[in-house]
Amino acid sequence: MNRIHLACWLLLLSVITGCSGLKIYPNTTEKNLLIRTKATGSFFMKVEVFLHVYHLKDDCKNDYLGSIKLKNGETQIGLPTGQPTYLAFVFRTDGITPSTTILTPRPGNSYIADVTYADRIYNFSLREAGPRGSPGRELERQTRNCPDHRSLPEYR
């Protein structure tokens, strides 16, 4: 009976995660990143948006922490502070298109990301939230300086 239960749970889990092999990001730390998502496809093209989170060890090494499927609207994420985090916003249509940056969240600070996809044009911007909810400064997108592209994660 226990084995049947276990098999059922595994089956349910695989359905929930879309059988994609994606690990769900635990999202247990204090929420410091607000993501505002607005993605529209068309009759012929469905658009899904995912956030993949990696702990960056150096320019070419990372630990995959997990992924979150972003629905239209607001999503609160907790990122570890004081360490460089590699954020990959991935737009899934017929293809897989990543838009990435590196963020080292400072303790006590919060961040806002705007993620859009419309008419086959995608955009992503990141800003530090100002005091009392005011819009803060926009953060320049940071890229990895890794000469060997094979070391970069394969997005799913």
Binding site: M45, T93, I96, T97, S99, T116, D119, I121, Y122, N123
Partner: peptide, 23 residues
């Protein structure tokens, strides 16, 4: 046209989005 529209956004400065070249 979607690449064209993205470029229009860049030069006008009102939309900095990238064209999804996988499409």
């Amino acid at each position: 046209k979607f690449i064209h529209n993205a470029m229009r956004g860049w030069v006008k400065g009102d939309n900095m989005g990238c064209p999804d070249l996988t499409t």
